[in-house]
């Protein structure tokens, strides 16, 4: 994760130009150490496995896991497709609902006063624990898993969006007031752009939450997906499959995170940078 966020911050500090980058624009100083670390770790893993120092029922040799990717490619891809679909659908639904509700609530003091304490408390509730209940309501399969993901990503986005919408300096509001701007214009021109750093902070956290929740919810509520694959391969001691599923889940999480970071950069022209307002 750090290899993605660190160059982002460096670019902010320098106002867009990225110092210390090679001719291709790749910050080797930041990319190389973690890559070398992973290579060393895999090498150590291979050596210890070959020497028989790691029990195969805990961690199979890297070759066996790699083999799983080529041999069981279709199975992994099918389950990964389900999990990605659930995680991304839940991610979009939950965050879209959070942004819309935060906008509505920021207009209404009464709604905010009534709901805000529960949104705060919700941070203490393990949302995945509701999966059995959601299975009863929605049936087994994709709907309960998507619902768990949506609910889990909803609250951080809602809370941050509420804070973000209230974050713009009162001077900006007074300026728009003297220009006779409408509430909608104020939202569009000041409050939404000012809230984006807050929203993206939440989105970066919920990118991984989305996949974790999808996988855990699949243990209980589905018979497809990486979560299901992990449980089944664990029960049948198919350790290479289990490890391959974990690696696929990690890569998918990083992809979603990368999409969020790219979206934030693409919007930078119209929104505040962190700490700007």
């Amino acid at each position: 994760m750090s290899s993605i966020t660190v160059p982002d911050l460096a670019a902010d500090a320098a106002g867009g130009s990225e110092p210390g980058t090679g001719p291709a624009g790749i910050p080797w100083g930041l990319v190389l150490p973690p890559v070398l670390f992973v290579v060393a770790l895999v090498a150590l893993w291979a050596v210890l496995s070959a020497a028989g120092l790691i029990p195969r029922y805990i961690l199979p040799a890297p070759g066996a896991v790699l083999n799983e990717f080529t041999r069981n490619y279709a199975v992994l891809a099918r389950h990964a497709a389900y999990t990605s679909g659930e995680a991304v659908a839940g991610f979009i639904i939950g965050n879209a609902a959070a942004v819309l509700m935060a906008i509505v609530f920021s207009y209404s003091g009464l709604l905010k006063a009534a709901f805000y304490p529960f949104a705060l408390i919700s941070r203490a509730i393990p949302i995945v624990a509701f999966t059995p209940l959601l299975v009863i309501v929605l049936g087994r399969g994709l709907p309960p898993v998507i619902a768990v993901v949506a609910i889990a990503v909803y609250f951080p986005a809602f809370l941050n969006m509420m804070r973000g919408l209230a974050s713009a300096d009162v001077d900006y509001h007074e300026m728009l007031h003297t220009l006779s701007a409408s509430r909608w214009q104020r939202l569009k021109m000041v409050d939404l752009p000012a809230s984006m750093p807050y929203l993206f902070a939440a989105l970066k956290v919920s990118a991984s939450v989305a996949f974790i929740c999808a996988i855990v919810a699949e243990w209980i509520g589905a018979n497809v997906g990486l979560g299901y694959l992990v449980v089944i391969s664990g029960q049948y001691f198919k350790l290479p499959t289990l490890w391959a599923a974990i690696i696929v889940a990690a890569v998918l999480t990083l992809l979603l995170l990368a999409l969020v970071v790219l979206a934030e950069r693409a919007l930078r022209r119209w929104t505040a940078a962190p700490g700007e307002i």
């Binding site: 300096d169 001077d171 300026m175």
Partner: peptide, 9 residues
């Protein structure tokens, strides 16, 4: 006003 209130973005 004293602060120029230029929107930074």
């Amino acid at each position: 006003s004293q602060q120029s209130t230029m929107l930074p973005w």
